[in-house]
Amino acid sequence: MPAKASRDSVEGLVDSLLKGDKRSAGKLISLIEDDEPEAVEAVARIFPHTGRAHVVGLTGPPGVGKSSLINRLVRAFRSRGKTVGVVAVDPTSPYTGGAVLGDRIRMADTGVDPGVFIRSMATRGHAGGLALATFDAVRVLDAMGSDLVFVETVGAGQSEVEIASRAHTTIVVEMPLTGDVVQTMKAGILEIGDVYVVNKVDLGNEDVLVANLKFQLETRDGWTPPIIRTAALEGRGIDDLAGAIEKHALYLDQSGGRRKREVARARLEILENVQRLLVRRVSDGSRSGRVFQKLAEDVAARRLDPHAAARKLLGSGSTAQ
């Protein structure tokens, strides 16, 4: 579908957004999600108004109860007087290219609260990658005035690491397995979490998982990741989890960690944008595109190695300016 938002001026949308208008927030996120040309302008206009929200990423395998946890967390923070945004990332069906975005249903009872904004996004082929679009959407909610923004993704591939590198607080959600099985952690999962949640403790066997986590988790920069037991559907452990998030936010403020994370994230985003610009520059019919094609042919013919070609391309890129 053509972007409806393009009919509205980006400036107008951003002005309304800053007044807290949800309809504008919805449209701006669509621009970003659809990777419309206006998105660049939109993000540029929004950016100066961001940086206030505390961004919490949740990751974990499908079915572990992330949406239900977020639903409960939203309620918990609402009752503490905070406004809350949620960006839920759903996998796009590889068969139809469509998606049924179902996370809303689990969060349905928080959806009409004026202090809550929930948006589902599909993981279709966004040129900047999942994370870039998702976290630009987070900025929209930040600029709208959300105190907290939760980002939910299915823990598959690199998305956990992407979340961890951008969120202020990363929550890793696991659940105890039923039956007599040895539960192993996905590689890398122990390094990224600021808070660990063992959800669905009603299913039993959680002691093994908790002990296993406790044994393996280490203190990093003076923060020892807490392990919180929850049963999201029944609402158990949610206050503990909300408390852990607040505590981590406080730790970031007091330790200077927030600033450190922001800088690390900025570095990452600059590099991502460099890559994105470079890809765009060499793939059209421009002079750089022709240089790129020539270099590729040289490498294929073994006249040049790929490293040397890359150095040449960057060189030509700069001279092309």
Partner: peptide
């Protein structure tokens, strides 16, 4: 008792 939230399917 709380209310039931149904598991989601695709």
């Amino acid at each position: 008792f709380g209310v039931w939230e149904e598991p989601l399917l695709y």
